[in-house]
């Protein structure tokens, strides 16, 4: 995937809310960037000293702007994530590379209406969706909840553009979103999209199912950040090598640091590109992805190396 990466320069870094920065990338060679679809993400590759950080971020739009891409990054306490680097060390003028956009959270354009629900930093792909729906003129509503008024990035911007289609809620105040009511009032043919913290996504999907919404009409951005864990060894059957996976890195990251180039796309356990066969494992596989079926997870013969780990000493992969 590195072969198709695009070198870009950080043209602007802007603090838009508590712990949230908006970054604008522009192409180094000045040639137009590819147009992208609402819900698409790009994988940003950053160098932090000797360490390479590759993180997926949703593209916010505006759609059709081929002179630059914009992302928003929430600073998290996750020590190995890229957010600290972005907040502390990524300045205007820095050079990074980005992948071609790809989309695992696309709009279903057959819908007669779209119900967009965002929590916190989950607003980023939803903003591109609102932009798209506004352009093609399909009815939509956007319900956006944030922790506090000041953490609500982009509320004013959205209200200015889309007026009464935007509904803002502060979870610390009493004005919480009445989901059950909202879900019961939508016309037949509505599709729902949710992006935000895992807990919120699970809540919204559960309530929608309980309100009788069919699975086919529910869409969620299921990016998972790789989480740390105990270290273990990965034995590579084909190349006859052993690579140590440390506490704060994923198998994919460890393999890349060792100079290997396994295929990947989303780095968030959603797309299936990095699916790898497990030949043996002396412990349990900790499946953190949203791609494999429950049955496949149970069988333990496959692993998504971008997010999943093992609890054990050693796993042998068909690589």
């Amino acid at each position: 995937m590195s072969g198709a990466d695009i070198p870009v320069r950080v043209a602007r870094v802007e603090t838009v809310a508590e712990r949230i920065k908006r970054i604008r990338f522009v192409p180094v060679d000045g040639r137009p960037l590819p147009t992208f679809s609402a819900g698409a993400h790009t994988v940003v590759t950053m160098r932090d000293g000797a360490k390479t950080i590759k993180n997926p971020y949703s593209l916010m739009g505006p759609l059709g702007d081929t002179t630059g891409y914009e992302i928003s990054v929430l600073r998290t306490n996750n020590s190995h994530g890229g957010s600290q680097f972005v907040h502390e060390k990524l300045f205007e003028g820095a050079f990074v590379t980005i992948s071609h956009p790809s989309n695992l959270f696309a709009l279903d354009l057959r819908a007669r209406k779209h119900l967009l629900i965002a929590g916190g930093i989950g607003i980023t792909p939803i903003m591109a969706m609102a932009d798209q729906l506004h352009q093609i003129g399909t009815p939509f509503e956007l319900h956006y909840s944030t922790r506090t008024p000041s953490s609500g990035a982009y509320v004013d911007e959205l209200k200015q553009r889309y007026g009464r289609k935007i509904h803002h809620y502060q979870t610390v105040s009493a004005r919480r979103i009445d989901l059950a009511n909202l879900l019961s009032q939508q016309p037949l043919g509505t599709h729902l999209y949710v992006c935000g913290p895992d807990v919120m996504i699970e809540d919204v999907l559960r309530l929608a199912r309980e309100a009788g919404w069919p699975e086919q009409h529910l869409h969620a951005e299921h990016f998972t950040s790789p989480r740390g864990g105990l270290p273990f060894d990965v034995e590579l059957a084909k190349s006859a090598r052993t690579v140590r996976v440390k506490e704060d890195e994923s198998i994919l990251q460890a393999l890349e640091s060792a100079g290997l180039e396994p295929p990947y796309l989303c780095r968030g356990g959603a797309c299936g590109q990095c699916e790898t066969a497990v030949l043996s494992c002396d412990g349990n596989i900790l499946h953190y992805d949203h791609y494999l079926t429950d049955e496949e997870k149970e069988q333990g013969r496959k692993i998504m190396i971008c997010v999943s780990r093992i609890k054990g000493q050693r796993v042998t992969l068909d690589l």
Partner: peptide, 11 residues
């Protein structure tokens, strides 16, 4: 099908 679902822009 599995291959095509991950077909990339520009490739």
């Amino acid at each position: 099908l599995k291959f095509l679902l991950n077909l990339q822009l520009g490739q």
